[in-house]
Simulated assay, not measured.
Amino acid sequence: MEKVSESTWLTEQDDIKPEVWLIEHETRNGAKQSETDMNELRRSLIEASAKFHDSPRMIANRAVQLEDMLKEEGGDETAIVLISRLNDAIAPNRIESFGAAGQQYYNMRKAGFTGEQALDALTKRYGSRS
C-alpha cells in the first residue's frame, strides 16, 4: 500500500506514485476522483514525461507549484488540468522542460491573458509544425 504524503513536494524517497499523490492533493482540496481519472492521469504523466524530458515526479511537483502560483493570482486551474493543457499545447522537443512551459504559461496569465489565450500563444510558439 502506498503511503500518501501531505507534503507540498514529492521526493524520490516518498513511497507513492505521482498520479496517486496528485489525486490525493486534489481530493484534499475537495475534488472527487475516480479510477478512470487515475488511469487518465497516469497516461497524461507518461505523455508529459516523454514530451518534456522530465520525470513524472518532477512534472507532478511543477504542476502543483504552478497551481499554487496561479491561485495566488486568482486562478482556479488544478495541477491535473494544467498537465493535460500543457501536454495539448506543446509538441515534443519544442521546449526545455515542463517547468519552463509552466513558467511561460504563468507569465502570460499574470500579464492578463486568459487561460485559453495563454494556451493559444504557447501552441502557436511550441505546437506541432505542420
Rank of each mutant, 00 (worst) to 15 (best):
S84W: 11
G30R: 11
D68A: 11
S84Y: 13
F52N: 07
T78A: 11
F52Y: 14
M38T: 14
V20Q: 09
R129C: 03
A91L: 00
Q117D: 11
R125H: 12
E47D: 12
I59R: 05
A48D: 03
L45V: 08
V20E: 08
N87G: 02
A63Y: 03
R42C: 12
G112R: 03
I80H: 03
R62N: 14
S44Y: 03
F98D: 05
S44K: 09
H53W: 03
R125Y: 00
L82I: 14
T8W: 01
L66D: 05
T27P: 01
D15H: 04
L70Q: 05
S128P: 05
E12N: 06
S55M: 09
S84Q: 14
K71E: 12
K71M: 08
I59S: 06
G74L: 03
L70K: 01
A60F: 00
A100C: 12
M1E: 15
L41M: 05
I46S: 11
A60V: 05
E26T: 06
L122Q: 12
E40Q: 12
N107Q: 12
V81C: 08
E35R: 06
A89W: 06
T36L: 15
A79W: 00
Q65M: 14
V20F: 01
Q104E: 15
S128L: 02
N107E: 14
L122H: 09
I23P: 00
G99C: 09
F113K: 12
D14S: 09
L119S: 09
D54H: 05
E6L: 11
T8F: 03
E96L: 13
D120P: 03
I90Q: 02
G74F: 01
L122K: 08
D68K: 10
D68L: 12
E24R: 11
E72G: 15
F98L: 10
R109C: 00
A63S: 15
L66G: 04
S44I: 02
E2A: 09
E35I: 11
R57W: 02
K110D: 04
K110E: 07
Y126F: 14
A91F: 01
F113M: 13
Y126H: 13
E35G: 09
M1F: 11
A79V: 00
